[in-house]
Amino acid sequence: MHIPDGMLPAEVCIAGYAGTAFLAWLSVKKAKSTTEDSARVVSRASVMAAAFFVVSWVHIPIPPVSVHPVLAGLMGILLGWISFPAILVGLFFQAAMFGHGGFTTLGVNALTMGGAALLAWGAFRLLKGNEKGVKSLIPGFVAGLTGVVLAVVFTGSILILTIPEHIDAGVEFSSILAMAAAHLPLALAEGVFTALVARFLLKVRPDVLA
């Protein structure tokens, strides 16, 4: 789901970096305004960035491609605003250590994945209430599902709208849909996983949720 180097025109890469710089600045500013303990912010972001990096080693074959867990939703609900810089760092490590994504496309990739994480966190906060039983799983499920689906749709849209110069609009739209459909099993699995982890953490340590 990461866009490699060379796929996007330089103008799009520069715009991606500009957007990422703004969102990273905003995230750090918002995170600092909500907590004074910078050690806590940095340490949590690092653990989640490391987890984000490690899960990309897990490959799930969905022919003709293979996908890997994203954890955007989980990062959003655990880190809130700081999920964006954490994803940015995780993506940098993935690009540097095994060539997932790239350096010129780091800004764009951070925007698609980090933006999805922030929106997933927003969805979680909107839906979170005092429900019991199965209903208590809904906010986490929606966050996990949203994290993957939005990341795929953002990535697919950028790829298809920027690379090919003379491609039929109908084919472009169908391709975005096909890409999202290929990731649907992963989105559902991440939805269930995020829901169960969120419920577990709400029971054991509710203070760790953003």
Binding site: A24, V28, S38, V41, V42, S43, A45, S46, V47, A49, A50, A51, F53, V54, P85, A86, L88, V89, G90, F92, F93
Partner: peptide
């Protein structure tokens, strides 16, 4: 803050 997260992530990848 990004440098700090990066340094700690590098250390933490092995630990996790």
């Amino acid at each position: 803050i990004l440098v700090d997260i990066g340094i700690l992530t590098g250390r933490y990848i092995m630990v996790i």
